[in-house]
Design a protein around this nucleic acid. Structure first.
Lengths: 201, 201
DNA sequence: AATCACCCTATCCCGAAGGATAGGCTTCGC
DNA sequence: GCGAAGCCTATCCTTCGGGATAGGGTGATT
């Protein structure tokens, strides 16, 4: 029997998802609510044929949790599931050895296909699905402005950002101003919050 | 036949949720992916016996979308569903006329009970479920510091925050300093980002 | 060749942010 | 009553953020 693990800290999402997968007959579904529980399940009942991990879950700590689960699952496929995944993160996850990722915007019937695909050893990476929201905003800000924006989000001063990118402080100030205008922000802090809302950083 | 509407922009969550509710026999379930679609559905097929709206959904615009749906649904119950809802937001939603709210951390069996409860005209507000994450961090920051933090997150200047809460600007500066220290932030922007990470604002 | 968009730099200015220090004010528990 | 803690205010100072203006440089498109 094919064994699948679904780990998500949202009971509602996890349980309905598990029920749906079982109803579709893809296999026997176990559930966990965080990374620790996931590792414990693998430890007691052996590796799963596929593990689906929510990216926003206690213990994930970015991609560190993913790596730990991949190691514990002994080569069998482990995939991410997330409501909002960025293109960079997706690539990093694949490099870290993920079997793929499932955006929550995926249709439920496509999910079944994706799960069967990954159980079969294929990589499921619907890159065409996620760049859309990214590219929609991408034309708005230039590459430099995004650099500056990320620096601001990390709490850095203009001087630090300038040093990081080998620029002059005045140049950074310029980017801060133009970028804040584009985002409709009143100041750098506001810009950082808006950027986070739009998942730009 | 009881008619239920589930609106969420995550196809996966929405569809599995709808399938689960139908399988449990609580009624006929229609789905929508944003506020506009929700309003259109109500317009064409009449009010639903219960509408479940994701709080993080295109067109919601805070509680404005909720209010519009409540008006459109003609007095029948409308509830919020969200992964992370704050205690203040929950209270505001109830004041706005919501029939309740369903945290995604709720168990799937509890969901069915909650749905039946709200269809019956009751208010479903599991306040005991959500204050936990709030109170965990609550001891760290004082009430005033949280006020200031929220102002910073909205991109306001110290002067504006002071005016909003009837304080002097220097007082706000003091709170910014102490609160940033507590959070381990280098400056106000950093503090805002950390606060958002920890879901304090 | 001309134009456009983006990028970088410079100087000057003002207001805001951040920090140090010092004191007054309530409210609580002892 | 007393101290402790949290809150508020004040003065002073330094640095940083934000804006205006005025350039010069690239690369791509036309």
């Amino acid at each position: 029997m094919t064994r699948i693990l679904v780990a998500d800290d949202h009971d509602l999402v996890r349980d309905t998802l598990a029920a749906y997968l079982e109803a579709e007959g893809v296999g026997e579904v176990c559930v966990g609510s965080d990374v620790a529980e996931t590792l414990a399940l693998i430890g007691t009942s052996g590796p799963f044929d596929l593990a689906l991990l929510d990216y926003n879950m206690p213990g994930m700590d970015g991609l560190a949790g993913l790596t730990r689960v991949i190691e514990a699952n002994g080569g069998r496929p482990v995939a991410l599931i997330s409501g909002s995944i960025s293109i960079e993160l997706a690539e990093q996850a694949l490099e870290a050895g993920a079997a793929g990722f499932v955006p929550k915007t995926l249709g439920s019937k496509s999910l079944v296909a994706a799960v069967r695909c990954m159980i079969g050893g294929e990589i499921f990476a619907p890159l065409t699905l996620i760049p859309k929201p990214t590219t929609a905003e991408e034309g708005l800000l230039s590459a430099r402005e995004l650099d500056v924006l990320r620096g601001i989000g990390a709490g850095k001063s203009n001087k630090e950002i300038a040093r990081d990118h080998d620029l002059q402080e005045v140049t950074v100030k310029l980017h801060v101003k133009t970028m804040s205008r584009k985002l409709g922000a009143k100041n750098r802090t506001h810009a950082a919050m808006i950027a986070r809302d739009r998942k730009l950083i």
